[in-house]
Design a protein around this nucleic acid. Structure first.
Lengths: 234, 234
DNA sequence: CAGAAAACCGGCGGTATTGCCTGTTTTATG
DNA sequence: CATAAAACAGGCAATACCGCCGGTTTTCTG
């Protein structure tokens, strides 16, 4: 899908890329809210609850994601909650979709803004730095909680793993699409991306022990390793 | 146990290193069990419960680490459980110590065995490979659960963070001690270690999405990057 | 304006988990 | 052997969470 042309400026590529990737990750029934007041209000409270759920995940972990906490944080009654999400799993499934979508959205916003401000910098560097910043967001913290919980919760995994796989597919496909210069080396590109994902998430995990200095050093080393991946094949 | 002698230098360093590191990480009151039958039996059931707790962590996550589950898996009564660990937090604290100690023990066993079998290989490679194998153990899975839970559970964090910090200190100190060849480049060594820790733990997290091939490729790239760290300064 | 539909409200019972408590058995000690 | 102490056993109340339910308010529709 989406065989648009990339004429020149990467910002052009940026906006079409943004639309395409967000469309691929957007939760169903979330495309262009209708003018009906009921449905607008409904989507609004639904979003309030999802954001409250993300707060719960970030502050109290997956086991702190209880229906009562979410309802209290979102300032909605338990009845309203039940109306939108009949069971807790329904809520969790919606949270999974929401978190992945938000991760994609926030990364793209940050990355495109960074590209607009640093026109002469290496795209690889900008992308890597933007990815590291995205790992430090609360959305990524929520993702981490879900990812770890999905390892041991089979019911959660049935919704999490497909979403994670879809995110990964959209990510790699669009990376190939938006860097036509290296299209013939897409394997090296994917490897660099996988590499950054692994290093950055591992750093997030060990940040409390490593401290700022060691984290920064590892970031530096990994970035040079990623640059090396492109140099060796270029 | 297993105090076989290795005539060569680094293996000699190995056994003393093993003893030193294990002594530094061993939970208090666990050094050389006394001949008292009561205390031996006590330590035995205590260990049964700790291992059952690790099983709970691996299979059901931190929220699945309930007193009832542990008692059932360990085949001890809830009363006996309460006798050894008055409250759940006491159990969790003991589990934290146990997991860190086991991680250290299993890594050293594997690493020293690998050194004994591949006398001509690069130590850096052997250490990196052993570290990756250690990340795939159930003990590391338990560690991951605890590490993520500690991010949001303040009470757990009060016992987890000091233990993690101590593990890190022992790790880096002994690394410097047992690689005297690079003693003047201990910063690069530490950096390589941090790098491997970050990449490997991140890979563990994304393994279900990446799949075996991509994991292997990232492992390969990271190992070459680590080798490069030593070459550039050597 | 009347009826339907959608959104919202708060309470109830069942289940699970935790902490504490009173006994019982086994081992150590004088 | 007697007594103390340690290890073990299981029951009970309190709490929290979940799913479900009938009832209420607000918005849409003819």
């Amino acid at each position: 899908m989406a065989t648009k042309r990339h004429d020149r400026t990467m910002t052009m590529t940026g906006t079409t890329m943004q639309k395409r990737m967000l469309a691929a990750m957007r939760p169903q029934g979330m495309g262009a809210e209708p003018a009906r007041w009921q449905q607008r209000k409904s989507a609004q409270t639904r979003l309030k609850m999802l954001e409250a759920a993300v707060d719960c995940l970030v502050e109290s972990g997956y086991q702190g994601l209880t229906t009562a906490s979410v309802a209290e944080r979102a300032a909605v009654s338990r009845g309203a909650m039940h109306h939108h999400f009949a069971t807790r799993i329904d809520l969790v499934a919606a949270v999974v979709e929401h978190v992945f979508f938000q991760r994609m959205r926030l990364f793209l916003e940050d990355y495109l803004a960074s590209m607009a401000q640093n026109r002469d910098a290496l795209l690889i560097d900008l992308a890597t730095e933007a990815h590291w910043r995205s790992v430090l967001t609360r959305e990524y913290a929520a993702y981490l909680e879900l990812a770890v919980a999905a390892r041991t919760d089979a019911e959660l995994n049935t919704t999490f793993e497909p979403a994670a796989r879809r995110y990964d597919e959209v990510w790699t496909a669009e990376m190939i699409e938006s860097f036509p210069q290296w299209r013939d080396q897409w394997e090296a590109m994917k490897l660099g991306s996988d590499f950054a994902i692994a290093v950055h998430s591992g750093l997030l995990l060990h940040r409390p022990v490593f401290g700022p200095q060691r984290v920064k050093q590892v970031i530096q080393v990994s970035m040079e390793a990623i640059r090396g991946l492109y140099r060796t094949e270029d």
